[in-house]
């Protein structure tokens, strides 16, 4: 602090707590709603304090599901989202690290062409090629499958660039040394580069897990069967029915469950999260 101004020192704390309260309010409200009776909410008489239906509502949400629209229990959706997020994040890391390894540590024809081929995909998000991509997935009979949910999303220019950048900073001496020890390219990768990349992989995993868990447009196109729905898609289908039929406590319980894993990842792995976020945006 450059100068002390007595009472003025409290202002930042007040502003920050106000900001935190405003940001947290929608989630608090969702939690409160998820513990109340459906009819109270439907009548617009919702209390601002938690009700007594916590266990009941969450049990019904996870194991039974809503009685209208999508009847799938949210437990299934959580499982689908988890599998999708894990497959996307681990898949992206795996295929990106090996392609970055090839681009940095080998000389082969079309090396730069391959690099640009991967790089330019940054400019081709799903949104600009919705229907043709859907059609290819359909032709390959990938609809309603985990392969269809994940495969088209696991290419990653960002991850490849990040690993390439990191490999460039690894001293050449390491390669010389392991070569003297008689290591070939695969052993060098496994015993030297992978251990060195651990922090980068972890930081990337945090970001990509959130990315995968929150996918919306692609799962919306590729899944038609209720039991293949992810939780982010499922929750939207719970409220499109007419107002009277929407079971708001269960919708809000689903919202809480949909937020919990990615938010927990951010809070528990905050250091890695910040690092991943800053590095992937470079």
């Amino acid at each position: 602090m450059v100068e002390r101004r007595g009472i003025g020192d409290i202002v930042p704390h007040l502003v920050l707590w106000l900001g935190i309260a405003v940001v947290a309010f929608p989630v608090y409200l969702a939690f409160v709603a998820s513990t109340q009776e459906a009819y109270l909410i439907a009548n617009g008489q919702m209390s601002l304090l938690p009700g007594g239906k916590f266990l009941d509502n969450y049990y019904r949400t996870i194991f039974i599901g809503t009685s209208s629209s999508t009847r799938e229990p949210v437990g299934t959706m959580l499982f689908n989202s988890f599998v999708m997020a894990m497959a996307i994040s681990l898949g992206k890391i795996a295929i990106s690290i090996i392609s970055a390894y090839a681009i940095v540590y080998f000389r082969f024809p079309f090396r730069m062409a391959v690099f640009w081929l991967i790089f330019i995909t940054l400019m081709l998000p799903v949104e600009v090629r919705i229907y043709p991509t859907y059609k290819i997935a359909a032709d390959l009979s990938l609809l309603d499958s985990f392969a269809g949910l994940t495969l088209p999303l696991i290419a990653s220019a960002t991850a490849t660039l990040l690993f390439r950048q990191f490999f460039m900073t690894v001293p050449d001496e390491l390669l010389e040394a392991s070569r003297i020890d008689g290591a070939g390219p695969i052993r060098f990768f496994k015993d030297t580069l992978l251990p060195l990349s651990r922090t980068n992989m972890a930081a990337l995993f945090v970001i990509l897990f959130i990315y995968g868990w929150n996918q919306y447009l692609w799962p919306l196109l590729i899944t038609t069967r209720d039991n293949m729905q992810t939780i982010v898609i499922g929750i939207r289908k719970m409220i499109t029915t007419s107002d009277a039929l929407t079971e708001w406590p269960l919708v809000m319980a689903t919202a809480m469950l949909a937020m919990l894993p990615p938010v927990a990842v951010v809070i528990l792995m905050q250091k890695l999260f910040v690092r991943g976020l800053v590095e992937t945006e470079k």
């Binding site: 929608p26 909410i41 919306y216 107002d243 809000m252």
Partner: peptide, 26 residues
Amino acid sequence: TLLIWPYAVAPAVAGVLWIFMLHPSL
């Protein structure tokens, strides 16, 4: 910590939270 977590909320879920607060009847 208390300010960065909304990053992890899916856009669709954020939409659901806000329509619930701003829903005309409830």
